[in-house]
Amino acid sequence: MKTSLKHKTTILVVAVFCWMSHTVYAQKETELFIPLGQSPGISGKLSVMGKCGSITPRDSVVSFMEPGGMKSCRMNYRTAIYLDRSKLKLTNTKGSLADIKPGSIIEVKLVDNKPNGLIEWIKVQQE
């Protein structure tokens, strides 16, 4: 009985450990300085670029036009908003929802690349 309990506890500990390994986000801080469309392994493959259509601040939803049509995605407190000011020869900075304006060119990367999922980061071009 005691052994069985210990065995189950061990399996639980390893399972929790493996789950944690899968869910924690990797370091993405230098991503801030990478201009729109240049994120290695992401841009052109796993992210979408388009023109921002509308923002619904109450639901933190951003709609944007991509080649396949209008797409809406949701942000949460972990979503990073990067202001790409590289065309202005200025340092890129972190932004807020208020910096995303209809008509802005944006690049959106979704968490785990799931369609219609949460936004992991969104880059907004500043010109």
Binding site: Q27, T30, I34, P35, P40, G41, I42, S86, L90, N92
Partner: peptide, 28 residues
């Protein structure tokens, strides 16, 4: 690594962190 977190992308993060001329870190 930034981007897709792969070894291939590692160099991009390293350039931004360690190769910069100033702390503005403006690409180009």
């Amino acid at each position: 690594a930034p981007g897709d977190k792969s070894l291939r992308s590692f160099a991009t993060g390293a350039v931004i962190q360690h190769f910069t001329k100033t702390l503005n870190r403006v690409p180009g």
